[in-house]
Amino acid sequence: MSDGPVVIVLAAGLGRRFRASGGEGSKLQADLHGKPVLDHVLATVKRSGLKHHVVRSADGDGMADSIAAGVRAAASASGWLILPGDLPLIGEMSLHRVARALADQPVVVPTFEGNRGHPVGFTRECFEALAVLRGEAGAASVVQCYREQGRALLLPLDDPGILTDVDTLDDLQCVRDLLDASR
């Protein structure tokens, strides 16, 4: 068994909202200061030093299908951090904080200013429930089940990047502006 959780980077989505907003191609391949959105996410994951697996295709086209595929591909891990590939501003410390918090609770949901974000962390205990997920709802049903049992931690983080995704051209411009402002 692995010595820590694996970051499951979700990169199989169809990006319907991005194209509907006027974007061309995949939002994950959209240019963000000279490199694709997904490359920003992968660079952060690599800097974190955590093991990772990228889901580029799944049986079905929903987020839950991608989560299930990723968890099954990394079945020997002690847990998983589910990270959509469209969060280019996420900080590596956020990944570490969620990973560490899995030592205390089987489900960890990071928050920023009271809003739930990603990556959502799950321990090995959640494997069976995650491995059979289907459809668009992601792992919300698994999180809800553990919350009802009092076994899910809402983990406040000081990282707006856990919420800042790229779903539309306007979102992409907002992220560009945020990166410009931080330079």
Rank of each mutant, 00 (worst) to 15 (best):
V37H: 09
V37K: 08
V37A: 07
L38D: 14
L38T: 12
L38K: 10
L38I: 15
D39I: 10
D39L: 10
D39W: 12
D39A: 15
D39P: 12
H40F: 11
H40C: 11
H40W: 15
H40L: 14
H40A: 10
V41S: 06
V41G: 10
V41E: 10
V41C: 12
A43C: 12
A43Y: 10
T44I: 15
V45L: 06
V45Q: 02
V45M: 08
V45C: 05
V45I: 12
K46E: 15
K46P: 08
R47L: 10
R47W: 09
S48L: 05
S48Y: 06
S48W: 08
S48D: 07
S48C: 11
S48Q: 08
G49V: 12
L50Q: 09
L50C: 08
K51C: 11
H52E: 13
H52F: 13
V54D: 05
V54M: 05
V54K: 04
V55T: 06
V55Y: 03
R56W: 09
R56M: 11
R56F: 08
R56N: 11
S57K: 13
S57V: 14
S57T: 15
S57N: 14
A58D: 04
A58T: 06
A58P: 02
D59P: 06
D59C: 07
D59E: 15
D59T: 08
D59Q: 11
G60P: 05
G60I: 11
D61C: 07
D61T: 15
G62A: 13
G62R: 09
G62T: 09
M63A: 11
M63S: 10
A64V: 01
A64L: 05
D65Q: 05
D65E: 14
D65I: 04
D65F: 03
S66L: 06
S66A: 15
S66V: 04
S66D: 12
I67R: 00
I67P: 00
A68P: 00
A68Q: 04
A68T: 01
A69F: 04
A69W: 01
G70W: 00
G70Y: 07
V71L: 01
V71D: 00
R72E: 01
R72T: 02
A73I: 02
A73W: 03
A73E: 02
A74N: 06
A75N: 00
A75P: 00
S76K: 04
S76C: 05
S76W: 02
S76Q: 07
S78H: 02
G79L: 08
G79H: 09
W80K: 02
W80N: 01
L81W: 06
L81K: 03
I82H: 02
I82C: 07
L83H: 05
L83M: 09
L83G: 04
L83K: 07
L83P: 05
